[in-house]
Simulated assay, not measured.
Amino acid sequence: MLKIGELNELKVLRKTDIGYMLTDGKEEVLLHNNETNFQKLEAGQTVETFIYYDHKARLAATLSKPIITTNRPGFVVVKDLHETLGVFVDNGTSKDMLVSKDFLPYDQTLWPQVGDKLYCILRHKNRLTAKPLNKVDIDLRPENPLKLGDKVTAYVIHSGHEGLNLITQEGHKLFVHHTQMREKHRMGEELEVRIARITPGDYSGSLIETKEIMMDKDAVMLEEFLKKHGRMALTADSDKEAIDAAFGLSKKAFKRALGRLYSERKVIFENGETIWIKGE
Rank of each mutant, 00 (worst) to 15 (best):
K251H: 14
Y155H: 15
D96E: 11
G188C: 09
S94L: 12
I243D: 01
I121G: 06
E212R: 14
P66E: 00
D80K: 13
L110F: 10
H55W: 05
H32G: 05
K40A: 06
P66S: 04
E241Q: 10
D24Y: 08
F225C: 02
K15Y: 13
S238F: 12
Q39D: 00
Y119S: 05
R58V: 00
L234M: 10
R72V: 13
M214G: 04
L146C: 12
G279W: 09
P200K: 15
M21H: 06
E212H: 12
L118T: 06
E223F: 07
E212K: 12
K131M: 12
S250V: 13
I243N: 03
P66D: 00
A253K: 10
L128C: 05
E6W: 01
L41T: 08
Y53K: 08
W276M: 03
R58D: 04
T274I: 05
L122I: 07
G272L: 10
A61Q: 01
Q39Y: 01
G272S: 06
A43L: 01
T36H: 00
T62D: 05
I213G: 04
P142Q: 11
A236D: 06
R72C: 09
E209T: 13
F75K: 04
T93V: 15
M97P: 01
F103K: 10
E241Y: 11
F175I: 11
Q169H: 08
E35W: 02
T199F: 00
L258S: 08
E212M: 11
T179F: 13
D150F: 13
M187K: 10
K15H: 15
H229G: 08
G201C: 13
N165C: 01
R58I: 00
D90Y: 03
V152A: 13
F38V: 04
K15S: 15
V176M: 10
D54T: 04
D239R: 14
L258R: 06
A257E: 09
T109M: 00
Y106T: 13
T274E: 03
K56W: 03
E264M: 11
H124W: 03
L128W: 06
V87G: 03
H178P: 01
W111P: 08
R182Y: 11
I208N: 06
P73G: 00
A236N: 13
F103R: 01
V136F: 03
L7R: 11
N33T: 02
P132I: 02
M215N: 13
K15F: 13
L133M: 09
E280T: 09
E28V: 02
E42T: 08
R127E: 09
T84C: 03
T93K: 05
G279Y: 10
G259F: 14
G160C: 03
I157A: 09
K65L: 08
N71K: 07
L140N: 07
P112C: 02
M232S: 09
T274A: 04
D90A: 03
G230I: 07
H82K: 09
F75A: 02
A130M: 02
D90Q: 06
Q113E: 10
